[in-house]
Structures are given as C-alpha cells and as structure tokens.
Amino acid sequence: MDSGLGWWGVPIAVLGGALRVSTPFLFVSLGECLTEKSGRINLGLEGVLVMGAMSGYAISYTTGNPWLGVLAAGFAGLLLGVLHALVCNLPRVNDIAVGIGLMLFGTGVAFFLGKPYVQPKAPTLPAIPLGGWSDSPQIQAALQINVLFVLGLALALLLHWAFRNTRWGMVVRMAGDSADAAKAMGYSVSGIRLAATAGGSFLAGIGGAFLSLYYPGSWNEGLSSGQGLMAVALVIFARWRPLACFWAALLFGGAAALGPALQSVGITSGYYLFNATPYVLTLAIMVVTCSPKRTLSGAPGELSVTR
C-alpha cells in the first residue's frame, strides 16, 4: 500500500467507522428501546455500558475466553438493570433521576473494581473479514466485521418481529402504552418493566464488552465518551423502532469517524466542531420531527420522556 486513497478515503473511513463504532450504539439503543417500550426510561445505561466494558475485560482476562467476558458483561448489566427497575417500581420514584444515579453508581463501581485490569492484555474478540473480494487493503480493513455487529443486526430484526408478532412483545408494548390495560388483563406492570429493564441492561452490558474486547479493545477509565447517553437520544431519534435503531447506530458511528477522516485528508481546522457533528445532527432531527401538537409516532404512551 504505497499510495493512499486521497479524498476517497473519507467515505471509506466513514463506512469503516460506521461498522466499527456503531456496535455499542446499536446494543445500547436496542436495550433502551426494549426498556422504553415497556414504559420506562433508563438513563443509566452509560453506567451499565462502562460496567459491562470493565467486567467483560476482567473476565476475558481471567478466563482467557472473550466470549465468557461478553456473557459476564451482559450479566453485570442485568444486575444493574434489576437494581434500576426495583427502585423505580417503588411508587413516586422518578425513573430519569434513578437513571442518573445508576450512571454514577455503575461508573464508580466499574472504576473501583477495574483498577487491576487497566494494565493486562486480555484476549479480544475475533473479526470476520468480509473484504476479501477487494484488492484494496483499506476496503479489506473497513469490512472487518465483528460477530457482535452481526448479532446486533439479527437482534434488531428479532425485536422488530417480536414486538409485533409475539405475545411477549405485545405484553411489553401494552405495559408501555397503557399500564391500566395491562393491569386489566391481569399482568403485573412492574414485573414486565423489571424484565424489560433487566433485558435492556443485559444488551447494554454487551455493548460495553464490545468496547473493551473489540474496538478500541482495551479497558481504561476514559473508554466510553458518552456512548451510553447518546444511545438514549438515538432511540428517540429512531422512533422506538428496532430496525431504525440499527440505521441510526450506523449513522452515529459514521459521524464519529468523520472528524478524524477529514483531518487525515488535510481539513485540519475546526476539528472540535466536526467532532460535535453527531450531537448537532441528533438535535436537528429532533427539532424537525418533534411537534408540540401531537405525540411522537411510535412513542410508548406511558413514557415520561414523551409526555
């Protein structure tokens, strides 16, 4: 590779970045989507993500098996999710505030317990090379796909289908749209939300494991730069549709790659502003698509964020 791609490098970097950076967004947003569909918002997924990253790395290092790490990350997330749900199930407790508390708690515990794992090198997750058809090493590198990404896509499809076509999916949506209706049918709304929050946090934990076990692939305290928080915005952006979450995650990943890619072809001024693209983009889309006159289409009726 004795020549670069020049301007073509930008779209390729954005594509590669989308595939590399999007997975944590995807998992956290699918998790949040599940939780919000049940009528509750969990703003604490940032803490869950960090906890997942730490525990995934720690377990992968101690057992030598990154997949066990992924599983451990999921369970660490699940525990935090249960905590969130139990506290929120108490009457008159505000779920957004508990989320902020969980963010602090999860991050604190992860930093506290994660100290011994900053230095060691844990085995990381393998990649699937999908770019073998191309001669260009750049394209080959951009198309290195992680299994978790594929899993995330499958999960998005599964959730999309399940919300519409399974009894389980309908119960979750009912708890989210009208707690009274769910109660009338004899379901425990708090039970459903507990399950949905726990499940959602499980996914967010896996998103964290992707950060520490694949890309960028190590554990340290600055690992997450707010991906967990952004994912919450992403769900609103995606209108609570799992498939849209997938596209939105790709978009956010690509946007994250834009700043460095532009600098690499020589556009070097204003990099702080380029790096803020995803945030501006989300805000702009929210402003354009929201309306004070009607409910967001697809928004669960019980959700505090949309009321």
Binding site: Y279, M286, V287, T306
Partner: peptide, 15 residues
C-alpha cells in the same frame, strides 16, 4: 417544538 428537554440539554452540553 415539544422536544424533550432532558435529551436536548444533554446534547446541548456536548455542543
């Protein structure tokens, strides 16, 4: 615009 203020204030912080 009916934009949720929690999310927008967070995004505005990053900006």
């Amino acid at each position: 615009r009916g934009v949720n203020e929690t999310i927008s204030s967070l995004l505005l912080t990053y900006i």
